[in-house]
Design a protein around this nucleic acid. Structure first.
Lengths: 114, 114
DNA sequence: TTACTACATAACCAGATAGTATATTAGTGT
DNA sequence: ACACTAATATACTATCTGGTTATGTAGTAA
């Protein structure tokens, strides 16, 4: 007997969940999210902070934008990106914890502490 | 001023996090996880429940196994798979909630209720 | 042994995706 | 207006990945 209950999930729900998780399934995108934990930043700032190429960073940011993970505003020449879904922090922290528990190695954490 | 603190994360940590999230970034794999919420099941049972082809299911199960999401035991002709990392439930539930909040549409949930 | 069942692996193809090169857009100065 | 530069986005390409078919392997039973 299961110790939890399941509700039915639609095909669409599985697709959407998959898209969201897939958006987080890339080291460079995780770096971007990590960099954005300080708050809103421009593409150039993110390029510098992550060490990636500008075109690549822009592409990953677009994917994150489409997935609803980040938001964007434009002002003059700059595009400012920010994390639009705070759940991301909890997701990353949970996942870090899970990995740590399994490996007992010190990875550090994506975490809010305030 | 940020409202959270960051610790440094290594390249390896970003890679591992990415691999874990990527494992969840596929609708069929989410279906398998969902099916395994009832408890341990054989490949055949999972094939029937998800409606996928056996070879494809086996492939996804191997990926989930390698990613540390599920466990496996063999008995006679059957291979029994189970969720080995309970954090998965929380991750999926958080993600479902996040999607619901953003879309205000009814997706149902991956959730533990007991 | 032979036959059958359950599962895994290999080979292939089509579509997706990460990274790089190129283009576009917006501002500045003349 | 025009050229020039800075900031960002899009197009191209090689690789990766999911799905499928075919084949292999191991346990079971006659």
């Amino acid at each position: 007997m299961p110790e939890y209950r399941k509700e039915n999930l639609s095909d669409e729900a599985f697709e959407m969940l998959g898209e969201r998780f897939r958006a987080l399934g890339e080291p460079m995108r995780l770096r971007l999210i990590y960099a954005l934990m300080d708050g809103e930043k421009t593409v150039s700032e993110l390029v510098e902070e992550t060490g990636g190429l500008q075109a690549n960073i822009s592409k990953h940011l677009k994917l994150l934008l489409d997935a609803g993970v980040v938001g964007r505003r434009k002002q003059g020449l700059h595009a400012y990106y920010r994390i639009s879904d705070p759940t991301i922090f909890e997701l990353c922290d949970l996942m870090c914890g899970s990995i740590q528990d399994q490996l007992e190695s010190n990875l550090g954490r994506f975490s809010r502490s305030s």
